[in-house]
């Protein structure tokens, strides 16, 4: 842990773990999209691949630990940062200078985290522990539940908001030269955020109505 002694090192670790998770989310989205196109067969094949490929098997615990790290460190940083101002402003107008998304990473993150737990119990645990006869069917069935779908869509909107700040923030933390890359990263970050939010939500809504 000495590597993570300073605030900047912690931030770098947050950035790296965050970007790794973005990669996972994008991969996940790609697999989910096969639900709609090409369809069941492709999806089942992808699930099969994920369940058996040795590389994926190695990555799975790493991913799991990264999630834990990102969440744990996020909470830790938020908690310590909060403690740096014991007396609050009577009149504070933070909106004048920064975006809502940037100030509320902990809450968007927290919401995604809650969803993640539900999600794990709904999909991942059955996948691992039970003999699920039809993965496709399991997914589709859940989307027929309106409450679940609403929760699902909200979670991914939260993740989109989280990424709209987090993506470019991660690169800033990694020291990418700002005057050269800032615009590009900002735009890319927003695009990734929209793809994730819209992509996942669209699938859920599609199956809710179909």
């Amino acid at each position: 842990m000495t590597l993570l002694k300073t605030s900047v090192a912690k931030k770098v670790a947050m950035a790296l773990s965050g970007l790794f998770l973005v990669l996972f989310v994008l991969l996940h989205l790609a697999i989910n999209l096969t639900l709609i196109y090409p369809g069941k067969e492709a999806f089942d094949a992808a699930v099969e691949f994920m369940a058996t490929n040795p590389f994926i098997q190695i990555m799975q615990p790493i991913l799991f630990l990264t999630f834990l790290f990102h969440i744990g460190m996020g909470i830790y940083l938020e908690w310590t940062n909060k403690s740096k101002r014991s007396v609050k402003y009577v009149n504070n107008n933070p909106g004048a200078a920064s975006s809502w998304a940037s100030r509320n990473m902990i809450w968007t993150g927290f919401f995604v985290f809650l969803f993640l737990i539900i999600h794990l119990f709904n999909y991942f645990v059955p996948f691992k522990t039970q003999d699920v006869p039809d993965h496709y069917e399991l997914v589709i069935r859940l989307f027929k539940n309106p409450y679940y779908t609403i929760l699902y869509v909200m979670a991914f909107i939260a993740l989109g908001v989280h990424l709209s700040h987090g993506f470019q923030s991660a690169f800033q933390t990694l020291g990418t030269p700002r005057e050269k890359c800032n615009r590009a990263l900002d735009i890319t970050g927003k695009i990734v955020a929209v793809i994730v939010a819209v992509g996942f939500s669209a699938i859920a809504i599609y199956f809710y109505f179909n």
């Binding site: 605030s7 900047v8 912690k10 931030k11 770098v12 940083l77 310590t80 940062n81 740096k84 101002r85 933070p94 004048a96 200078a97 920064s98 975006s99 940037s102 100030r103 990473m105 700040h165 470019q168 923030s169 800033q172 933390t173 990694l174 020291g175 990418t176 030269p177 700002r178 005057e179 800032n182």
Partner: peptide, 28 residues
């Protein structure tokens, strides 16, 4: 002091317009 979460508020409120680029440079 707390750690930076790149909200960018500092740059906006800085009376001398010190740029966030400097934070990226520090990080690098």
């Amino acid at each position: 002091f707390g750690s930076c979460t790149n909200t960018g508020a500092c740059e906006v409120e800085c009376p001398k317009g010190i740029s966030l680029s400097n934070i990226a440079i520090l990080n690098k």
